[in-house]
Amino acid sequence: MIEIHNLTKRYEEAAVVDNVSLTLPESGITAIVGPNGAGKSTLLSMMARLIAPTSGRVLVDGLDVQATPGAVLAKRLAILKQNNQVGMRLTVNELVAFGRFPHSGGRPTVEDKRHVDEAIAYLGLDDLRTRFLDELSGGQRQRAFVAMVLAQDTKYVLLDEPLNSLDMKHAAAMMKLLRRTADELTKSITVVIHDINFASIYADHVVAMRDGRVMLEGGAVDLMQETMLKDIYDTVVKVREVDGHRLGLHYL
């Protein structure tokens, strides 16, 4: 369980994340949604101790992320930020193997190799394992980075906009994959996501933010209400049911 207590992050005087308290479950997919500048990515980074909060604290299975040694936390929680360094000429295999660093300390065992192989197979990257990252398409590269965090074999996985720069086909495939990962490997996956319809279809749990505050903590059904969406995004979004899924039509 990830518990967030009164978390605040201020830059100068402006609060980007403003007194947020949340509890994220042990398993399933949690989607963090909200307009630009709502503080979603900052919240995620603070959860993963990449940014120090101005006040408040985050507990991962009871461990305070600011006080726990990085190497200990790295076995429980993995984060993948957007804008990864694509200029680095590493092969897919090498990148994924770095996910084992918290466990192997640079001396990979048979067990580590197995995790790497599994993660690569799980993401369907077997044919690409000796290819350099800068020779891959955006979708393939994103899958390679996700394989790396899966190889890290943590209970909690935080992904900052994993659908960014993916086309329709690859975005849907990525969400299906995350759904399958959460179910089959019983992980707790938290994604910052822009497309509310992906959240509606794939998330078990939704956190909606605006101006650094939590507007909603609940299920996808709670999010997909016209009045709720109006409050969060400050724009009219019609909601229709299609094949049992509630979809927002923000194009209209």
Partner: peptide
């Protein structure tokens, strides 16, 4: 060598792996 490679992948990436 491994640490320098990880650093080349960025600060967030490095800290995610528990390295300083």
């Amino acid at each position: 060598a491994d640490r320098f490679t990880v650093a080349g992948l960025g600060e967030s990436f490095t800290r995610n792996l528990g390295l300083n």
